[in-house]
Amino acid sequence: MRIAVTGASGFIGGAVATALADAHHEVVGFGRRARGWSHAGARYRVWDLDTGPLRADRDFEAVVHCAALADDWAPLPAALKANRDGTRTVVRSFPGARIVHLSTSSVYDAFVPNVDVSESAFPVRRFLSPYAESKTLAEFELAGTNAVILRPHAVYGPGDETLLPRLLAAVRGGRLLLPEGAEVRHTLTHVDNLVQAVTRALDPGVPRGTYNVGDDAPTVLADVLREFFDRRRVRARIVGIPYRSAFALAASLETAARMRRRRPALTRYAVSQVGMERTLDLTAARERLGYRPTATSLEGAEAW
């Protein structure tokens, strides 16, 4: 199959493009950065979605759209341009191709716990970040297309520069302060499981639609973090902060940051993602995609 992968210079896009090229598909990776991804059996091209639709070499059977601005503090216009408008550009660039769109569980209501949340809980009308709002609107751009939308939560694994590394960097004096001590259940998503879901979604026989994606079963986030610290030989104790206190502090920091035009040290979105349950119902993916995820695993994390 001839497949285009947007965002190939990033963590998820690079993992997807590499896996598809390893499987001997004809892959062209697209990204903003020169030499952002490479594979002996594939090609890489620089393409900034902000510049508009691709003008040449558009004959692809499928496109995996991984490119996104995953920043919970990005200004809304910037988030919309990258995520909503970028998705519109992909649809226009590859007419007739099957689109596998990498969305996010952040499209669900961040103000309340998501307990075994199903795909039907979308859409919502309130958001804690421009990221969530812009990714919600991006999904609407795919209405009426031959698209499969995947909604993972907290993608981690080799090459991750966001989730676990950020929490590791937040350790101060041997302590990591987290809302509720992160003693809440999460459906995490190993990048290998996400790649499996993408591969299944590319099958023309798989019905289009929207699917939650994650590891085989939920886990307590604090337990995962403790194992990660052990594997990385980091001495760190998790200290819990009441959720309401952490949320109020983040709101104050956001207000001050807006006045000073700076990035806050903590956001309400981050508090909500760590301190509330975020578990996904994977029934649709299992039954309709034939998705068979593995359990949450930190094997090899010593080298991540």
Rank of each mutant, 00 (worst) to 15 (best):
V191A: 06
R98W: 04
V171R: 13
D215F: 04
L225R: 10
R286K: 15
A15P: 05
L69W: 02
V100E: 10
R260P: 00
A301C: 05
R258N: 04
V91K: 01
P179K: 08
G157E: 07
G7R: 02
L76D: 07
V107Q: 01
P242A: 15
P77N: 10
C66D: 12
F122A: 13
V220H: 06
V112D: 01
T104D: 01
R226T: 14
R98F: 04
A70K: 12
R278A: 14
A248Q: 09
P165D: 07
W304C: 11
E139F: 01
R32E: 05
L202H: 09
V64Q: 11
V63H: 06
A82N: 03
L298Y: 13
V124T: 15
V64R: 09
D215H: 03
W47V: 01
A70N: 15
E227F: 03
A170S: 15
R172P: 08
G7L: 03
Y44D: 08
G13W: 09
A68E: 09
V148I: 08
P123R: 03
G10Q: 12
A97D: 02
R231L: 13
D116Q: 11
R286D: 06
D59I: 07
R126H: 15
M1Y: 04
Y156G: 01
A8P: 09
A301I: 05
V64S: 10
K81S: 15
E254R: 06
L177R: 11
L266C: 12
S103L: 00
R258P: 04
A70M: 08
F94A: 05
E141A: 08
R43S: 15
Y44A: 07
E26N: 06
G181W: 10
G275D: 13
D50L: 05
G13A: 09
E299A: 14
R208F: 06
R263M: 13
T296L: 00
L69E: 05
T187A: 08
P113D: 08
G96H: 00
G31D: 12
G173R: 06
V198P: 12
K135Y: 01
G31M: 07
A23T: 06
E254A: 08
